[in-house]
């Protein structure tokens, strides 16, 4: 079975990509994921805000107690004052690139225009095969209009595209008034791929300690429907490649994404849940399924169930929606309990 494919011009041995997750915090982790057979790895996200916060915190700790007592005018050697920039990230990236055969992509969550550009450039220099822009603004900010959010996405993409020569993907969230239009704008602005979708940080609350738990849950297959629908809609309508992420649990989920039109399928949850070696299970299952369905290669399956480019998307959606309603009305409630 030929699983090879192409993503943003990168030749991949298969369409399964390990998306940004704690698995790629270390070089060993990246190696494990690569050994399990994935086609590429997206390194964990570099958060500019975290870098800046660390810098401020370190500066505060270095200053604490300094210039107060004649014998100890400082408590740290000069090197401790160095800006805690993304050096650790870049070092992992650089070593991961050297350690594995498959492409390693950098993932960047910036805050400032300068941060996006500088860090992206540094990732490229460190050997990133491509850069995934993990753009999201804190949904808690009620002052920013939808238009502003959209403009910022485009601005960030443009500036990074200007700064680097490697391909640039945009991982975007689903919460736009018109996700389709947003996707088109990003496509026009030069995105080499669109990654659908980002999952907003939705912290939990611990009622025992009465505290907010900054934890992100693993995704479930049911969550795949939204990105899958959008991929089906965008397939053939955008120049950019389409990457699916969220809700991949079994080989079927990979296949479903391909059918909808995804160029590549990303997963973190399944690998975290079952271990990186689970990638092999997904890939074996994908081969089996393709064999059973008579798909000789990935391209043969890709977009089979996408909305045909010539059809009107709204019609298709409405049709699907109407169909779903009808199904609901005709079934007894028992079928919904699952």
């Amino acid at each position: 079975m030929d699983l090879t494919t192409d993503y943003m011009g990168l030749a991949l041995r298969n369409p399964l990509i390990a998306s940004a997750s704690p698995l790629s915090w270390t070089v060993e982790g990246v190696q494990r994921v690569a050994d399990a057979g994935v086609g590429a790895v997206v390194l964990y996200s570099l958060f500019e805000e975290q870098v800046r916060r660390d810098a401020a915190e370190n500066a505060r700790l270095i200053e604490a107690g300094s210039e107060s007592f004649a014998e100890s005018l400082s408590y740290f050697p000069d090197v401790a004052e160095d800006e805690p920039g993304p050096r650790h990230y870049l070092s992992v990236l650089e070593r991961a690139v050297a350690a594995v055969e498959i492409p390693v992509l950098g993932s960047l969550n910036g805050v400032t225009p300068g941060g996006w550009v500088d860090f992206a450039r540094q990732m490229q220099d460190a050997g990133a095969a491509a850069i995934e822009l993990n753009i999201y603004y804190l949904p808690g900010d009620t002052r920013i209009s939808g238009r502003e959010v959209e403009d910022r996405h485009v601005e960030v993409l443009r500036s990074v595209k200007e700064a680097v020569s490697v391909p640039v993907a945009v991982k975007l969230g689903p919460h736009f008034s018109s996700t389709g239009a947003m996707a088109m704008r990003l496509d026009e602005a030069g995105a080499d791929a669109l990654v659908l979708f980002n999952r907003f940080l939705q912290p939990d609350i611990d009622p025992e300690t009465l505290s907010v738990v900054p934890q992100i849950g693993l995704s479930h297959p049911s969550e795949a429907r939204l990105p899958r629908t959008w991929i089906a809609l965008l397939y053939g309508r955008v120049r950019a490649d389409l990457a699916a992420t969220t809700g991949v649990e079994g080989p079927d989920d990979v296949g479903k994404y391909l059918l909808a039109g995804a160029d590549v399928v990303m997963t973190a949850s399944a690998l975290l849940r079952h271990g990186p070696e689970y990638a092999a299970v997904l890939l074996d299952g994908l081969s089996d399924w393709m064999g059973r369905k008579g798909f000789e290669n990935v391209a043969a399956a890709r977009g089979k169930l996408a909305v045909p480019a010539e059809a009107d998307g709204a019609d298709y959606e409405r049709a699907g929606y109407v169909g779903a309603l009808r199904a609901a009305n005709m079934s007894d409630y028992a079928s919904w309990k699952a």
Partner: peptide
């Protein structure tokens, strides 16, 4: 602790 974090920043490989 900054005494450990500092090396992660200046020499990540050595820190690891």
């Amino acid at each position: 602790e900054l005494r450990y974090r500092s090396l992660q920043n200046t020499d990540p490989v050595e820190a690891e």
